[in-house]
Amino acid sequence: MNLRSTLALALILTCGLAAAPGLARDLDQDEALRLRREGVIMPFEQLMQHVGQAYPGSTLLEAELEEEDGILVYEVEILTLQGVVRELELDARNGNILKDEEDD
């Protein structure tokens, strides 16, 4: 492969990676506890108050703490009183709902 082909391939790969969505990294319980103790993230119970305001009476099905593009996010699945499963993403620093969609 000549230099021109190599540079063209590198440019294509770079553009493809730049267009791809960022990868998420799951954080374990120990890391979540450390971040909470350091005051980097809010207590999960406080974050869930935001969910309770948006969906009163909902049931928590699953929760994961992830780092997405440098932002700590809780990915939460809930079951609403209407029987709908929703997936929400909450900013772990302040509880703001970043994403709210019906889960399929």
Rank of each mutant, 00 (worst) to 15 (best):
R4T: 14
L33I: 11
A24G: 13
P21D: 07
A18W: 02
E89P: 00
A54F: 05
R86M: 15
L11K: 11
E45S: 14
E89K: 05
Q46H: 07
L7S: 03
R37D: 15
A63K: 11
E68L: 12
L17F: 09
A10H: 05
N94I: 11
V40P: 02
G70C: 00
L17W: 04
L27R: 05
I12T: 07
L60F: 06
S58F: 15
D26Q: 09
D30M: 10
P56K: 12
G57T: 04
R36F: 08
E101V: 15
T6H: 06
P56D: 01
L9W: 10
M42F: 00
N96H: 10
D103L: 13
A32G: 03
L65N: 01
E45T: 09
G52R: 11
G95L: 06
E67M: 09
T14Y: 03
R4S: 14
F44W: 06
L72E: 11
L47N: 02
D100T: 04
R36W: 01
C15W: 13
D30Y: 09
Y55F: 10
C15N: 04
S5I: 15
Y74F: 10
A32D: 01
H50C: 04
I97A: 00
L61F: 10
E75A: 05
A63E: 10
R86T: 05
R34W: 00
P56H: 06
L3H: 07
D100E: 02
L60D: 01
P43N: 07
A8S: 14
E66A: 12
L60G: 05
Q29E: 08
G22T: 13
C15F: 15
L60M: 13
R86E: 03
V73E: 09
Q29H: 02
M42C: 01
F44H: 05
R4C: 01
R25Y: 08
A63W: 05
V76M: 15
T6G: 02
E77Q: 13
E64G: 11
A92P: 12
G52I: 07
D91T: 00
A10F: 12
V76W: 02
E68T: 11
I71R: 07
A24V: 00
L33N: 04
L3A: 08
D30I: 05
E87I: 09
R4F: 15
I41F: 00
D69G: 14
R4A: 13
L88D: 01
E38K: 04
L90W: 00
A63L: 13
Q29N: 05
D28K: 09
A63M: 03
L88W: 02
I12S: 15
A63V: 12
L13W: 10
Y55L: 01
N2I: 07
M48T: 04
G83W: 15
P43Q: 06
G22R: 13
A18L: 07
T14K: 09
L9S: 09
Y55N: 08
I71A: 11
L13C: 12
L90T: 02
E67H: 11
V40F: 02
R25D: 04
L60V: 13
